[in-house]
């Protein structure tokens, strides 16, 4: 009963969404190293893929840099979350994953996270690997494959983008909770602590996932209506599908 009361109390604490970044210094060294080891190969894959694209078209490097700036800005925009009575910030990785694929999206997240760690103290250098893994890798993979899977099943573009954004956000939240629970548990068992952390972030992360989904859908539909050529260039749509739009 007491534990339930404490969980409810923690739920009532307004948790800003930057909490999805694991703060500098929170992870012990072995865990920090492990998350680095898992995240860096994915970023390396993104770099490899970008280098290949840049050989064909030199504008890809500036494009990815600008997309990193867009993701950074979007993740700093305050949007009210009614259930938590506070403002939250989307991640933007679902959006990047749909347009540029999961590996380049991981690279974009790594860049945005480095800038945030150095100049905003959101995340950190020691937790950079963990944050890349949760937001960049897991978020991008979840978003990308949800989008591709739903599109293959014939789901409309906007709806597929909505679920891609939603999945990217919730997958990031789940991965961050796992990283946090494993990092701070000390001698405590892992699963009960994970449950508490998941519960503590429910008030912001559930509505935030819907916000992220709506934002991703809005972005994709705007591109579809105004600039389908971008979606064709990024291989989100085939030229035939874009032509249907007129």
């Amino acid at each position: 009963m007491v534990k339930l009361f404490l969980c409810i109390t923690l739920l009532l604490v307004a948790a800003p969404a930057q909490a999805m970044h694991i703060s500098e210094g929170i992870l012990p060294l072995p865990w920090a190293v492990l998350w680095y080891a898992l995240a860096l190969p994915c970023v390396a894959l993104g770099i490899h893929r970008l280098n290949a694209l840049a050989k064909e078209d030199l504008s890809f490097k500036p494009l990815v840099g600008l997309m990193a700036a867009v993701v950074f800005i979007i993740s700093c925009m305050p949007v009210p979350v009614p259930t938590a009575g506070t403002c939250s910030h989307p991640c933007g990785t679902g959006m990047a994953a749909i347009l540029l694929g999961p590996w380049i999206s991981s690279l974009i997240a790594a860049v945005a996270l480095l800038l945030q760690a150095l100049f905003l103290s959101h995340g950190g250098l020691s937790t950079w690997g963990a944050n890349i893994f949760s937001m960049g890798v897991i978020g991008s993979i979840a978003g990308f494959f949800t989008f591709k899977g739903l599109r293959t099943m014939g789901v409309p573009l906007g709806l597929a983008a909505f679920f891609a954004g939603l999945q990217a956000d919730w997958a990031t939240y789940l991965a961050t909770s796992v990283e946090l629970a494993s990092g701070i548990r000390g001698s405590e068992p892992f699963l009960p602590l994970l449950e508490k952390i998941l519960l503590a972030f429910v008030p912001t992360q559930l509505p935030l996932g819907i916000l992220e989904g709506a934002m991703t859908a809005g972005m994709v539909m705007l591109l579809y209506r105004k600039r389908p050529d971008i979606l064709v260039k990024m291989r989100v749509l085939s030229a035939g599908e874009a032509a249907e739009n007129g």
Partner: peptide, 28 residues
């Protein structure tokens, strides 16, 4: 309201992406 806010935020994100694409060409 929340619904309008979501739509506006999507439009904002999309507009920024379009600007990023167009700027990348000019910059290159």
């Amino acid at each position: 309201d929340y619904r309008t806010g979501l739509r506006s935020f999507g439009t904002l994100a999309g507009t920024l992406v379009i600007k990023a694409f167009d700027s990348s060409r000019t910059i290159t």
